[in-house]
Design a protein around this nucleic acid. Structure first.
Lengths: 133, 133
DNA sequence: CAAGAACTACTACACATGTAATACTACGGT
DNA sequence: ACCGTAGTATTACATGTGTAGTAGTTCTTG
């Protein structure tokens, strides 16, 4: 569980479509990405082909189309990539990363309330929080 | 502040040496990286040369040696890369990232206490926390 | 039927990164 | 002076990623 879960920005964007839809064709992914990127459809196709070669996605044929699905979960990708970033930039110290986040400017009072609740839940050993995909 | 702050694992490792020492020669960086990697010195030199071309580091000559220093701060690199990761994998939602961190297994009671304190300090508008580099 | 659209397969280019050898020069030690 | 070491400059290769055109085939529409 290493190379399969380290993805670039564009790769994540593609996986996002697959995670959200469950499965999709090249055209559907292309359509979904189009508003924010003007990629050629063949660019998307190539990317998927390579991701499949790597084992990150898989396809089944439906008529003339390939129906792609993710073989790695969003949850696992998140886990690995956050862990890697923490390792590289925070010496593996999760608390340091959180401290960093809390000293940033994008944290709202609502965010703080949410985090506080999660901390308390974690402290008490209760299982509270967002469902993991 | 975009391309200058997006660094790969090896690049970060090199920058780590510069951030910690303030400035260093190729040989010093090579020496520092050697225990965990068996890179050729020329590999390190090339990497630095490229990073300099990009503007991430700069050098001054001292005798026959180049003395390199970072032109980007660890703090800014952290900021940008954490932001990018949050953007890509958590739809920009910092609280979601923190939630993710809190539901991981590597969070210790000490970590939780620390975070809780930080949250409270942030809520009260007080400036508490780790000094930023 | 013919033309166009849809779709995959194949190919190619540019760039970045990791890796490292070679060439060249300067310095230090014998 | 000579040789070995140190350090930079240059060069090169492999791999991965982003990007996209072309070729070939199949299906749809007029």
């Amino acid at each position: 569980m290493s190379e399969l879960h380290q993805l670039t920005e564009l790769q994540i964007a593609v996986m996002r479509v697959l995670w959200d839809k469950g499965e999709a064709t090249v055209a559907e992914i292309w359509e979904a990405l189009r508003p924010e990127r003007g990629l050629a459809q063949t660019t998307v196709a190539t990317l998927l082909s390579r991701l499949e070669k790597r084992g990150v996605v898989a396809h089944k044929s439906r008529a003339r189309q390939y129906l792609y699905r993710a073989t790695v979960t969003e949850s696992d990708v998140r886990r690995v990539m956050v862990r890697d970033l923490t390792e590289r930039l925070f010496d593996g110290d999760v608390a340091a990363l959180m401290s960093h986040l809390l000293t940033g400017r994008e944290v709202t009072p609502g965010d703080l309330a949410r985090v506080k609740k999660l901390v308390e839940a974690k402290e008490s050993g209760k299982e509270v929080g967002r469902a993991e995909k």
